[in-house]
Design a protein around this nucleic acid. Structure first.
Length: 420
DNA sequence: TCTGGGGTCCTAGGACCC
DNA sequence: TCTGGGGTCCTAGGACCC
């Protein structure tokens, strides 16, 4: 038996933990750069605010409907998430941290899975202050559906178990869930399935996996089997190493190469840190930059360049050199660049890399230097030691707006919450 | 004026080989 | 009317997720 615990409006709930005066009020959290809505409290959803909606379209609701908006504070959300995962880990036999606000548990052998789920849910609520719902099912996909039902039907107390019902009752519930709500069915597939008369989770469950595989894909066929109660997706207790690492941002338009270089250097530094944290080396690096798709009145351009790394590396300096080479190749003057990024790809474990006949991997000296830089930045704060290239151009030109950020209540002594 | 970021997996199609 | 056949490898792009 699988259980899926999913936090409600997670980022917005995190903000409300330290601002109890905002509980029961419309609250949204904005994406990087204060651009779009990425989390909404129940009251904000009631105002009709959509996921991903641009802030400028709804900012008038702040004075009109007492809407409160926060810039995203990932340090806070990540810290609360880690505390919640630890609470679950202490109670459930096996755990998969699926995302910052979701965890799958394997409750095989647990006598009363729904009871244990309710206990964990309440512990998270009391100890951290964030509300959550739990769905139970024979497969991950069914647990997801149970979770969806638990969220939509509060009368069940935040926990729902599809498997505890009779087959008829299960069908009844599944026929009330739109096919687009099924895990793995996005807008495109929803449209195609609906045109074939498959409109609900019950309809999809009743499909033949073999024909689904033929007309769609192996992925959707697996989903059908999962709906039927045949487990095709396992619990992944250990997160596998990333296969690629992407760092990208949108910014106010940049025209000059130096400003793009400064941004690209900083993205590369951030990516290289993540690369070393999982002890991988990159065999290739992709740089891209583009203008805004929304500005049809100015010339559009989108360029990308893949740079193979003859010597796979995790050394920031080598990665920046490659990134600059790529940027030089794709840069065209005269455009208003609005987004750029760096993708570290073709990753493998450090230490076992295939090296070129005439070159070795990173030198021992380079590794020690990077380890020292990472150590200082961890201890003294991000950006304590940096690469000169990050300060080329004017950083102000691409630094993102974050005008509504809450404090680092749980990760910085100077920003502790104070009650009066 | 202002429209997110970071991932995974699968498939189709091109290049290349014999 | 007819234009080989079968295989591998790689990449780009689509679809999905949170």
């Amino acid at each position: 038996m699988f259980a899926l615990l999913d936090m409600n409006s997670f980022y917005a709930s995190c903000e409300q933990v330290f601002r109890p005066d905002l509980v029961g009020r419309p609250v949204v959290v904005l994406s990087n750069g204060d651009a779009c809505v990425v989390a909404r409290s129940a009251e904000a959803k009631e105002l009709g605010i959509k996921m991903g909606q641009p802030w400028f379209q709804i900012r008038h609701l702040a004075p009109e409907k007492s809407l409160v908006a926060f810039s995203s504070n990932y340090a806070l959300y990540a810290d609360l998430s880690a505390r919640i995962m630890q609470i679950i880990r202490d109670s459930a036999p096996r755990l998969e941290v699926y995302s910052i606000d979701e965890a799958f548990m394997d409750l095989a052998g647990v006598a009363d899975p729904a009871g244990l789920s309710q206990e964990i849910r309440q512990r998270v609520r009391e100890w951290v202050g964030v509300p959550a719902c739990v769905g139970l099912g024979l497969t991950k996909t069914r647990a997801k559906i149970s979770n969806f039902i638990a969220k939509k039907n509060p009368q069940h107390g935040g926990v729902f178990n599809l498997e505890a019902l009779s087959p008829e009752a299960q069908r009844a519930w599944l026929s009330r869930v739109g096919v687009g709500e099924v895990w793995g069915v996005g807008p495109r597939l929803t449209q195609q399935l609906e045109s074939m008369g498959v409109r609900t989770a019950a309809d999809l469950q009743a499909s033949d996996p073999e024909s689904i595989r033929k007309y769609f894909s192996i992925t959707l066929a697996r989903t059908v089997e999962e709906l039927q109660g045949i487990s095709r997706l396992e619990l992944e207790e250990v997160a596998p190493a990333k296969q690629q690492i992407m760092v990208s941002r949108s910014f106010g338009p940049l025209l000059r190469l130096e400003d793009l270089q400064s941004a690209i250097a900083s993205f590369t530094v951030a990516g290289a840190e993540r690369l070393r944290a999982q002890n991988s080396v990159a065999h290739a690096l992709l740089v891209f930059a583009r203008t805004s798709f929304f500005r049809e009145d100015v010339p559009q351009y989108s360029g990308s360049k893949m740079i193979p790394l003859v010597t796979p590396t995790q050394d920031t300096r080598q990665l920046i050199a490659a990134a600059y080479q790529g940027l030089d190749a794709l840069y065209r003057p005269g455009f208003r660049y609005q987004k750029a990024g760096v993708l570290l790809t073709d990753l493998s474990a450090a230490g076992i890399e295939q090296t070129d006949l005439f070159s070795r991997g990173d030198t021992e000296q380079a590794r020690r230097l990077m380890a020292a830089v990472d150590g200082m930045n961890r201890k003294m704060g991000r950006g304590t030691v940096f690469i000169g290239a990050q300060r080329l151009g004017e950083p102000r030109r691409w630094k993102m707006r974050a005008e509504r950020k809450s404090k680092a209540y749980t990760t910085n002594w100077k920003e502790l919450a104070i009650t009066t």
